[in-house]
C-alpha cells in the first residue's frame, strides 16, 4: 500500500496559492481584461468621447495590408532571432562543458551580455555598426560596401535580428549548460565504448536527452522575440526604414503610444495575445510529444 500524506486543512492550499494568484490577477488578468474591453471601443485619447463598436477595430486592423506586412516581418524576425539565439548557445554550451581549466571564467564571460538591457545593447551595437560613427560601419563603407541600415531595409532587419539574438544567447547558454551537466556521464561513456563517434554521440544521445531544455528554450525564445525585442528595434531603427523592421509589437506600440489609437492598438494586443497562446498550445501538443523527459 502506498503511503499518502494528507493535509486536513482545507484553507491552507488556497492561502499558499493566494500571493501568486493575486499577482496573476492584478498584473495579467486585469490588464488583459481591460485590453479586451478597450478593443471594442473607439475613443479620443482623453476618453472624452467613447463609442462602442463591437469588433470594428479588429476589422480595421485585419483588413489593413500594412498589418499583414507586419505579420510577415514578425515571422521572419522571430524565426531568425530564435534560431540565431539558440544554435550558437548550444554550440557554446557544448564547448564550455568540455573545458576543464578556467571553466567559470568562460561561463561568466558568456553570461555577461544577459545583464545588459535591450536598449543599452542596441546602443552598443550602434557604436559598432553606425555608418558614420561606428567602427565596423565606417570600415564597410571604406571598403566600398553600401552599408547604411538607415536606408536599406534588409540591412536594418539583419542588424536588429543580430542584436536581439546576441542578447539572448547568454540566457540559452546557461540553460543548455545546466541541461548538459545533468546528463549522466555513464550513458555517454557507454555510447563511447560502443564505438559511437563524438558527432554521433551528440546527435543520438546528448541531443535527445537535452530535448526538455531545448523545448523550454524554444517557447521562451519565441515569446522573447515577440515581446522583448521592442527596445532593440526602438533604439536602432524605430521600425524603419520604410516598414522594414516594424514587427507586430512595434506597430502596436506606435499605434497606441504615438498615434494614441487606443482601440486599434488594444485590438492588436488581443490578436497578439491570441497568437502567442495559440503558438504555445501548438508547441505543447505537437512538439512536446517528441520530447523525452
Amino acid at each position: 500500500m502506498r503511503r499518502r500524506t494528507l493535509f486536513r486543512n482545507k484553507l491552507l492550499p488556497f492561502l499558499l496559492l493566494a500571493p501568486q494568484l493575486a499577482i496573476t490577477i492584478a498584473f495579467f488578468f486585469w490588464p488583459a481584461g481591460q485590453a479586451i474591453y478597450q478593443s471594442l471601443l473607439i475613443e479620443d485619447p482623453f476618453g472624452l468621447r467613447t463609442e462602442f463598436v463591437w469588433l470594428e477595430n479588429f476589422q480595421i486592423v485585419l483588413s489593413n495590408p500594412l498589418y499583414l506586412e507586419a505579420v510577415r516581418v514578425t515571422v521572419i524576425f522571430s524565426t531568425a532571432v530564435t534560431l540565431l539565439a539558440m544554435a550558437p548557445a548550444l554550440l557554446l554550451a557544448v564547448m564550455a562543458d568540455q573545458v576543464i581549466r578556467g571553466a567559470t571564467g568562460y561561463r561568466t564571460l558568456i553570461v555577461w551580455p544577459y545583464a545588459i538591457a535591450p536598449a543599452v545593447a542596441a546602443v552598443l551595437w550602434l557604436f559598432i555598426f553606425h555608418p558614420n560613427i561606428g567602427t565596423i560601419g565606417q570600415g564597410l563603407r571604406a571598403m566600398g560596401f553600401a552599408w547604411d541600415y538607415r536606408l536599406h531595409g534588409d540591412q536594418a532587419l539583419v542588424l536588429t535580428i543580430f542584436v536581439s539574438a546576441w542578447k539572448q544567447v547568454s540566457y540559452n547558454f546557461l540553460f543548455f549548460l545546466a541541461g548538459l551537466q545533468s546528463i549522466p556521464k555513464t550513458i555517454i561513456e557507454a555510447a563511447a565504448i560502443d564505438g559511437a563517434s563524438p558527432m554521433r554521440r551528440f546527435w543520438q544521445v546528448i541531443f535527445p536527452l537535452l530535448s526538455p531544455t531545448t523545448f523550454f528554450l524554444l517557447v521562451v525564445n519565441i515569446i522573447y522575440s515577440f515581446f522583448d525585442t521592442f527596445g532593440v528595434i526602438h533604439a536602432i531603427t524605430q521600425g524603419g526604414p520604410g516598414r522594414a523592421t516594424t514587427t507586430l509589437m512595434y506597430r502596436l506600440y506606435r499605434d497606441g503610444w504615438v498615434n494614441l489609437d487606443l482601440g486599434g492598438s488594444s485590438a492588436q494586443s488581443v490578436i497578439l495575445m491570441a497568437a502567442v497562446i495559440g503558438l504555445t498550445v501548438i508547441q505543447f501538443r505537437y512538439i512536446e510529444r517528441r520530447v523525452h523527459y
Binding site: 536606408l151 536599406h152 526604414p241 520604410g242 506606435r254 504615438v258 498615434n259
Partner: peptide, 16 residues
C-alpha cells in the same frame, strides 16, 4: 505624429 511617420516611411521606401 502619425502622419509624420507615414510620410517618412513612404519617403524612405522611395529613397531605397
Amino acid at each position: 505624429p502619425q502622419i509624420r511617420a507615414i510620410i517618412e516611411e513612404e519617403f524612405e521606401i522611395a529613397l531605397e
